[in-house]
């Protein structure tokens, strides 16, 4: 039986958190993305599936790559795309999320892809009854970024298991190490939850100041020593040091961080031969990753971007491709 992404009882028909995805949901999304990826190899990279549907990209935070990825995905499925960014819009004049949502609803949005600096904004939008359409979380504060986790899992499955052999399977027994600013990273949070759901073993490596409180309840191990973890890692995911969030003395100097937690060619050579290096982008070359590693065959950063379009096509298709998403919100 086919279930919709995010078919949790709290938010059916939306994709808010990687925690809402069951293993079957997650594998279904990855398998669907595998078929979507094949469309990219065809002369006509377009499917008529979402003709007549409207997808609104509602971005309260700057993010070019996520927005254009969602835009490309929606357009390949023939949906109409409306981009709404907070800068220079009614939001900068003081409009509330509710009024913005009601405006979008009046324009007939079938799906709203939302990026917001406040954690929980997509959940609010999905459960408030302000809009009827599906809500896709494209990153909220320091909470979650589920489509990034899905595309990372997709990239891992293609690299470690194989594009064809991987169909229908998870990432059972694979060891994934996530390195960097876990405290502020919604990418890390979503990845830990999703990779655990898919059966991978996750280890988090970060300076103690950048490990969040309560991490012992997360489905992962914690280490402070990158060199000890590297030889047993099938994949290493380098997180960007988010300068905009480094508002306290989390580490003494960038140089020291780079020495202890950055990935260079020397460290990479100690990883298993078929392991991969991932980065959600944008990269700070010389900080968490050296140019040598970033440009090597093992680094999947560019692949991740291409896979992002396939994953977002899969999510939009599964949310909008059928009849109305499972739930209809009662209007207030």
């Amino acid at each position: 039986m086919l279930r919709l992404p995010g078919a949790s009882p709290r938010t059916p028909g939306h994709l808010i958190s990687a925690a809402d995805l069951s293993r079957d949901d997650a594998v279904l999304i990855l398998d669907t993305a595998e078929e979507m990826a094949r469309v990219a190899d065809r002369p006509i990279k377009k499917l008529p599936t979402l003709r007549g549907r409207t997808v609104v990209n509602l971005f309260f935070e700057d993010s070019t790559r996520t927005r254009i990825s969602f835009e490309a995905a929606a357009k390949r499925l023939s949906a109409d795309v409306i981009n709404f960014s907070a800068k220079g819009s009614s939001v900068s004049k003081g409009e509330s999320l509710k009024d913005t949502a009601l405006t979008l609803e009046a324009m007939g949005a079938d799906a709203v892809v939302i990026r917001h600096p406040a954690s929980g904004a997509p959940y609010r939008l999905a459960t408030s009854g302000w809009i009827d359409g599906a809500v896709v979380n494209a990153g909220d504060g320091t909470h979650e970024h589920p489509t990034q986790a899905l595309l990372d899992a997709f990239t891992l499955r293609r690299r470690l298991v194989g594009a064809d052999q991987g169909t229908g399977r998870g990432l059972d027994g694979r060891r994934v190490t996530i390195v960097g600013d876990v405290l502020h990273s919604r990418v890390a949070r979503s990845n830990i939850l999703l990779l655990h759901t898919l059966g991978a073993r996750v280890t988090v490596v970060a300076p103690p100041t950048l490990v969040p409180i309560g991490v012992e309840r997360w489905p992962c191990e914690v280490s402070y020593d990158l060199d000890r973890v590297l030889p047993t890692s099938d994949a290493v995911m380098m997180l960007r040091v988010q300068r905009e969030r480094m508002n306290a003395a989390f580490f003494p100097t960038e140089r020291e961080y780079s020495r202890r937690y950055g990935l260079d060619g020397d460290r990479m050579s100690r990883m298993p031969g078929d392991s991969v290096v991932m980065h959600p982008g944008p990269m700070n070359r010389g900080m968490e990753i050296t140019a040598e590693v970033a440009d090597s065959d093992r680094c999947t950063a560019v692949e991740q971007v291409a896979n992002g379009v396939s994953i977002r096509m899969a999510v939009l298709y599964l949310l909008l491709g059928g009849n109305e998403p499972a739930v209809t919100h009662s209007r207030p």
């Binding site: 919709l4 499917l47 491709g321 059928g322 009849n323």
Partner: peptide
Amino acid sequence: MYRDDLRLRPARALA
């Protein structure tokens, strides 16, 4: 993805 009855049922798995 080319069916004319997509909207009559929940989204289906692709082959």
